[in-house]
């Protein structure tokens, strides 16, 4: 199977602190992967390198057949979309957030698509004009996730996005992510400690003290 993303001997260090050691990783297109490991082990760093939010110190990272350096970082991030743990919402209302992906592409917000996306994660059309300060933690996280997928990326990188959610919200988000993966063929890599999420993955990867272990 062809790899959509392939890492070879990827290292990351800050000053003399070695955060990732010789990471080799093949990520097949369409895979649904969970990434676990103790905190401070380097999981988020690894995802942020794949997201082009930070740059590896050495090694190679190939995306879709080309080294990451050959892409314009802005265009690359539209294809490999990273969602933060505890995201910040922008502006005043939910609409300000969901209009953002359109603004940066110089397009007008497709309200129909936005409303469908809201419905898919169990939010109503009414939410669109709600001030963000009125949203619960679960609603914020879902709005943030929608920002990442209004324009479907090839890869979705999720950094413990369900960690703050209650069981009900978690299930809604899971079902939706599964749909994105199976129906829309979005390759997903999620950092999680959740047993159900780990069980549902095609591939389980673990980062311990900066080293990657992959279990198919």
């Amino acid at each position: 199977m062809n790899s959509l993303i392939s890492l070879e001997k990827v290292n990351y260090q800050i000053a003399d602190q070695h955060i990732l050691h010789d990471v080799d990783w093949q990520i097949p297109a369409g895979a649904h992967i969970t990434l676990t490991g103790p905190s401070g082990g380097g999981k988020s760093t690894l995802l942020r390198i794949i997201a082009a939010m930070i740059s590896k110190t050495s090694g190679t990272l190939i995306f879709d057949g080309q080294p990451i350096e050959s892409y314009d970082p802005i265009m690359y991030r539209r294809q490999v979309s990273y969602c933060f743990q505890q995201p910040t919402l922008f502006g005043e209302t939910v609409a300000d957030n969901l209009a953002f992906p359109y603004q940066i592409r110089k397009q007008v917000m497709d309200t129909q698509r936005v409303v469908t996306a809201l419905n898919n994660v169990g939010l109503s059309e009414r939410t669109l004009h709600q001030p963000i300060i009125e949203l619960s933690g679960g609603e914020r996280q879902r709005v943030a996730l929608i920002r990442n997928i209004l324009f479907l990326p090839k890869v979705l990188l999720l950094d413990e996005v369900t960690a703050g959610l209650d069981e009900n919200n978690k299930q809604i988000v899971h079902a939706w992510l599964r749909q994105l993966n199976e129906h829309d063929h979005v390759t997903t890599i999620m950092i999680t400690h959740d047993a159900t999420e780990i069980a549902a993955a095609d591939q389980l990867a673990k980062v311990v003290a900066g080293r990657l272990e992959v279990h198919a």
Partner: peptide, 19 residues
């Protein structure tokens, strides 16, 4: 954090910084 999130969504540098 807000700037990082805008960048992660694929915003250009001006879009990420305009506010």
């Amino acid at each position: 954090q807000g700037v990082l999130e805008r960048l992660a969504l694929g915003a250009g540098l001006l879009d990420a910084s305009i506010a």
